[in-house]
Lab assay of single mutants.
Amino acid sequence: MEQGTVKWFNAEKGFGFIERENGDDVFVHFSAIQGDGFKSLDEGQAVTFDVEEGQRGPQAANVQKA
């Protein structure tokens, strides 16, 4: 798993971006967030995640709040 920081996340649209430790950004969809209840992330929040190849390039999977 990688570690990163939430760059931004739009809860209304259900997606955002995580900044990886290497400085690259990776797309995150709310469906990739682990846990119960409303799935959202806060700007600046530390997270761990896997990276999978999506239809439009790399995207975060198995996102967990650190």
Rank of each mutant, 00 (worst) to 15 (best):
A46F: 13
W8D: 01
A46N: 10
G44N: 07
N62D: 04
V26G: 01
P58Q: 09
H29T: 03
G44M: 05
A46R: 15
S31I: 05
G37K: 07
A32F: 04
K7T: 04
A61E: 06
L41R: 02
G37R: 05
G44D: 05
G37V: 06
F9T: 03
E43A: 09
D50I: 15
Q55N: 12
V63D: 01
F27A: 02
Q45M: 14
G14W: 02
H29G: 03
V28M: 06
N10T: 07
M1K: 15
F27N: 02
K39T: 07
Q45A: 10
N22H: 12
A11D: 08
G44F: 06
E12Q: 12
G54M: 07
Q64I: 12
M1L: 13
V63L: 05
A61W: 08
I18Q: 00
D36M: 11
D24F: 13
P58E: 06
N22M: 11
G14D: 01
E52M: 12
F30W: 14
K39W: 07
F38I: 10
T5R: 15
E43M: 15
Q34V: 15
V51M: 13
A61Y: 10
A61L: 15
F27Q: 02
E53W: 15
R56A: 10
Q34H: 12
R20I: 07
A46D: 10
E21R: 13
Q45T: 11
F38R: 09
V6F: 03
G16E: 00
F9K: 02
N10M: 06
S31E: 05
F30K: 08
T48L: 11
G54L: 06
Q55H: 14
E43V: 14
H29V: 04
W8M: 05
H29W: 04
V63E: 01
Q55C: 08
F27M: 03
V47C: 05
H29C: 05
G16D: 00
E2Y: 15
A11G: 08
Q64K: 15
Q34D: 09
E53S: 11
E19A: 15
F9Y: 09
A60N: 00
F27W: 07
K7Q: 04
Q59N: 06
G44R: 08
V63W: 00
D50W: 14
K13G: 05
F30P: 02
A66D: 11
A32Y: 04
I18F: 02
V63T: 03
F30L: 05
G37L: 06
H29N: 03
G4L: 01
A46Q: 13
E43D: 10
V26L: 10
T5K: 14
F17Y: 07
W8H: 04
K65W: 08
F17P: 00
I33R: 00
V51S: 04
E2I: 15
G4K: 00
K65Y: 10
W8E: 02
S40I: 10
Q64S: 11
R56W: 14
F30Y: 15
R20Q: 07
E2T: 13
K7W: 03
Q45E: 12
E19L: 15
E12H: 14
V51I: 15
M1V: 15
S40C: 07
F30C: 05
G4V: 01
E21M: 11
N10S: 13
Q3L: 11
E19S: 15
V28L: 08
F9M: 03
A60Q: 00
D24S: 14
T5A: 07
E19W: 13
A32G: 08
A46P: 12
Q64A: 10
E43F: 13
Q55K: 14
A11Y: 13
R20V: 08
Q55E: 13
V47S: 00
E12D: 13
D24T: 14
Q64W: 12
F30D: 02
G57H: 05
F38A: 08
E52F: 12
Q34M: 11
G16C: 02
F9R: 01
A11V: 15
G4T: 01
P58L: 12
V51E: 04
E19Y: 14
G35N: 08
V28I: 07
Q64H: 14
A66C: 08
E2K: 14
G14N: 03
A66N: 11
E53V: 14
S40Q: 09
H29D: 03
G54H: 08
E43W: 14
N62M: 06
V6C: 07
D42R: 15
M1Y: 11
H29Y: 05
V28Y: 04
N62Q: 05
F9P: 00
F27H: 03
I18A: 01
F30S: 07
Q64D: 07
K13L: 13
K65R: 12
P58D: 06
D50Q: 15
D42N: 11
F17L: 05
N62V: 04
V51F: 07
G54Q: 07
F15K: 02
